[in-house]
């Protein structure tokens, strides 16, 4: 765990995350605009709502631009014959080792946003934990899934 894992996740992950964040933030913006309309008609002071709008603007910047960028830059993985090595985290950087012989099953998953960018996420489950590699190119994710499932097929009779 001295060196970081080698492989990065798909560059398009950035776009997918941004899109997700934009969708979430648009709900906040809709509410904020609704607030402005309400303030206009009810003749209240603009103080509070402007304050909220500023907050939402900062939040938009952080979630749409900052976080996806840092998150992408941080995300690394590497699959060895004996184990899977993952690095992720924004403020707290976490490096995880999952031995192949502990892997119980591997899944690939794809929501509508990931599908749009032809990405898929890979979930690796052990008896006690689950780990996710969030955005890999479709083909790569499937290849990796099959590869891991072959490597994980080690004879071990105990739990």
């Amino acid at each position: 765990m001295r060196e970081a894992p080698k492989n990065r996740i798909a560059k398009d992950a950035l776009k997918a995350w941004k899109l997700t964040a934009i969708i979430v933030m648009s709900v906040f913006w809709a509410l904020t605009i609704g607030g402005f309309v309400l303030v206009y008609f009810m003749d209240w002071s603009y103080w509070v709502i402007s304050f909220i709008a500023a907050g939402v603007a900062i939040l938009t910047y952080v979630t749409v631009f900052l976080i996806p960028k840092i998150r992408w830059r941080r995300w690394r993985y590497e699959v060895f014959d004996q184990e899977i090595y993952i690095q992720h985290g924004i403020l707290i950087v976490s490096r995880v080792l999952v031995p192949m012989i502990r892997v119980q099953h591997v899944d690939t998953k794809q929501g509508p946003i990931l599908k749009k960018y032809r990405l898929a996420s890979l979930t690796i489950s052990t008896a006690a934990t689950t780990h996710e590699i969030p955005a890999l190119p479709e083909a790569e994710a499937e290849e990796l899934r099959d590869q891991i499932s072959v490597l994980a097929r080690v004879d071990e009779d105990d739990v």
Partner: peptide
């Protein structure tokens, strides 16, 4: 041990 994690803030 099912998995091992090293974390740093």
């Amino acid at each position: 041990i099912q998995s091992f994690e090293k974390r740093q803030h």
